[in-house]
Simulated assay, not measured.
Amino acid sequence: MSRSEPDAEWVKRFLSVPRFRPYVRDCGGNEALALALYRWNIEVSSALHPALNFLEVLLRNAFHNELTSHYVRSAWWTVARLAGDGALLIAGARRRLNRTCRHEPTSDDVVAAMPLGFWVSLLNRDNEEVTWRPALHRAFRPGYRGPRREIHAHLEHLRMFRNRVMHHEPVHMRHLEADHQRIYELAEYLAPGAAKMLRPVDRLAEVLARRPVPYLGRRRPGLTQTEM
């Protein structure tokens, strides 16, 4: 490494010792290797963005379409009695849109403004009678015909994973191949043919091949028929 390149001391000074510590620990105290792992974690997180982005857009559009059909209105949230903070989240999104949009916010504007956590919450137990049974079970067919709790568990897992990626947390200890597989399988349930659309912009495999240290974590299974 040349003198002009950042080194481990630079990382500890400007990115913090606590942030660098897990990488050093997982590299057996080797700071040079830890620096390589830190850089790779940034690269692999970036490589995960296309698949995570694609799944989130597919999910919200599929849910919106099914709920619009069931409630016979695009602003279905005005009649669906959502449990938890769902109604408050929508109201907050509408207030923000009213401040920033140059036009009256449309239903599409509201849908795009809602976070992934909102869409996943529509599959929790408290919303089963309002969303899952009348409408959202259809979003995953014909590929998936299992119970709500299974698909909710997998989406909740990916929501937490997405947050780690987007908030720049370490993901190098995860079985990223399995996380990746889970994204593809859920995307295919929502939109058959999604994998063919996504693969040309997905470079995760080539980044995984450059992993500077062996996989260190515990296997995370993908969503398979045997689990359903």
Rank of each mutant, 00 (worst) to 15 (best):
S69E: 15
E31P: 08
R182K: 10
V120E: 00
D109G: 02
F63M: 04
Y144M: 09
H154F: 06
D108H: 14
N53Y: 08
E188F: 01
A51E: 02
L122E: 02
H49F: 14
G84F: 05
W76V: 08
N41K: 08
C27R: 03
S16I: 10
C101G: 03
P134K: 03
R60A: 05
V213I: 12
E156H: 10
L89D: 13
W119Y: 09
R220G: 03
G86K: 03
R60E: 07
E5I: 15
N30D: 15
M114P: 11
R94P: 11
P214D: 07
A187T: 03
L59V: 01
V111Y: 08
W76T: 04
N98C: 13
R203E: 12
L88P: 00
A62R: 09
L208G: 02
R39F: 11
R164Q: 05
V44T: 06
L116M: 10
L155F: 02
I42G: 13
G84P: 05
N53R: 07
R199N: 04
A8W: 13
R125S: 15
G222R: 06
R73T: 14
P147R: 14
T131Q: 09
P50E: 01
A187N: 02
P50F: 01
L223R: 03
R3Q: 14
A51R: 06
R81V: 13
Y215G: 12
P105C: 09
E169Y: 04
P22W: 04
A8R: 09
D179L: 13
L82F: 07
K196Y: 09
F140S: 01
R149Q: 12
V17E: 15
A47N: 06
W77R: 02
G29I: 11
V111D: 05
L155T: 01
V110C: 01
T100N: 13
L33Q: 14
G193M: 00
Y184D: 09
W76I: 05
V17R: 15
L136F: 07
A91V: 08
A135L: 05
R99M: 11
R13E: 15
I151C: 01
R199M: 07
L136E: 06
L58K: 05
R39L: 14
R96E: 11
R102E: 14
R210M: 10
F14A: 03
L89N: 13
M173H: 15
L37S: 07
M1W: 05
V120K: 00
L116D: 00
F118C: 06
N53Q: 11
F118M: 08
R133D: 13
L123W: 05
H172F: 12
A32S: 14
V171K: 00
R73C: 12
A62N: 02
L48D: 02
N30S: 09
L37R: 06
G29K: 08
Y23Q: 03
I183V: 11
E150V: 14
E156W: 09
S46L: 12
G28I: 04
F140A: 04
